[in-house]
């Protein structure tokens, strides 16, 4: 970590210095101002979601610029959760349509979790075969598989839809999962790249001790790769949780639709003239909650993993 870089133009080679030792130069003030602006732009929408969600939808129009909730109420959350009565909802500017968010939440959890587990498991196994095992044609097969990186989702989308539809798997979790759970070029590429970099000493010792390739995979390579595996797992989970287009094509039934689609449904059920922004923001907040919790729990790991994921 190049701490010395932070020391500014006048920096003599200074030992790793704590914050108080750094000087307040104009450059630093400018830099911090920039960061504050960026952070404000980043965070403000999140605050605005909360502020709107805690407002009464009718009152929003009377004082739209108030920094605090207008006519504070939990009503929007009750509408989003479908526990407000129709009359109650309409009184606060909702449509009266209920949204079974718990069901959508369950669907999202099933989809994102199974997708993550399957793709990471399959990718790790293949990455091991492509990095630590030696067999004829290894690089050729790998290069062919990795060419999938070049195929944009746009292109495979329609044929995949037709294919899954012909299998009769629309509106099933199987149909939702199939295209992304077996193979994704990025996870394979990423895990293989890490495994290539592992030192072979331990592996060699195990080979001398007579361990077979499968045993080495489960006992040595997998544990050694736990950090990148956790990384791709987090990334895959976030991706699956936020997935929109594929579920939009493949599902139109409450029993499998994930949360991202539910938000669209909720938006459309709003009265055309004045959307139920409070209810919509409450629903958005509930939908984003798992990601926010994930962020609180694994923030540092996610932050580090992003950098890690970028390094080819």
């Amino acid at each position: 970590m190049a701490v010395t870089l932070a020391a500014g133009t006048t920096a003599a080679p200074r030992p790793r210095s704590p914050k108080r030792a750094t000087k307040l130069s104009p450059g630093r003030i400018l830099a911090w101002t920039y960061l504050v602006v960026i952070v404000l732009i980043t965070l403000f929408p999140f605050y605005w979601i909360l502020r709107t969600a805690l407002s009464n939808n009718y009152n929003l129009a009377t004082n739209p610029s108030s920094p605090l909730p207008v006519g504070f109420t939990w009503g929007a959350f009750e509408r989003a959760l479908g526990i407000a009565s129709t009359a109650q909802a309409q009184a606060q500017g909702g449509s009266g349509a209920s949204l079974d968010i718990a069901l959508y939440m369950r669907n999202s959890v099933i989809y994102a979790t199974s997708q993550t587990i399957l793709i990471v498991l399959f990718s790790a196994a293949a990455a091991y075969a492509f990095s630590r095992l030696h067999w004829r044609g290894r690089n050729l097969v790998f290069n062919i598989l990795i060419s999938a990186l070049m195929v944009p989702g746009v292109f495979t989308l329609l044929p995949n839809f037709v294919f899954v539809k012909n299998l009769g798997l629309t509106n099933t979790f199987a149909g939702l999962l199939l295209p992304g759970a077996l193979f994704q070029a990025f996870t394979l590429f990423f895990l293989r790249q890490f495994m290539l970099g592992l030192s072979s000493e331990v592996e060699e010792a195990a080979i001398i001790d007579g361990a077979g390739p499968l045993r080495i995979f489960f006992r040595i390579i997998l544990p050694m790769s736990s950090a990148p595996i956790a990384t791709v797992s987090l990334l895959m989970f976030v991706n699956a949780w936020n997935d929109y287009l594929w579920p939009l094509l493949i599902t139109n039934s409450q029993s499998v639709e994930p949360l991202t689609l539910a938000l669209g449904v909720f938006k459309q059920s709003s009265p055309q003239a004045a959307p139920d922004w409070a209810g919509l923001m409450a629903a958005a907040l509930i939908a984003a909650l798992p990601m926010l919790l994930l962020f609180v729990a694994f923030g540092k790991r996610i932050v580090n993993s992003i950098g890690f994921s970028g390094l080819k």
């Binding site: 293949a126 290894r138 097969v141 598989l145 292109f155 044929p159 077996l182 193979f183 994704q184």
Partner: peptide, 27 residues
């Protein structure tokens, strides 16, 4: 190594063939 490697890459190869290669050609 070869049989084990083939075993381990089955899901990836299937996924690639069915959901990338085939739809690309079909597209």
């Amino acid at each position: 190594d070869l049989p084990v490697a083939l075993l381990l890459i089955i899901p990836s190869v299937l996924g690639f063939a069915i959901f990338y290669a085939y739809p690309t050609l079909r597209g």
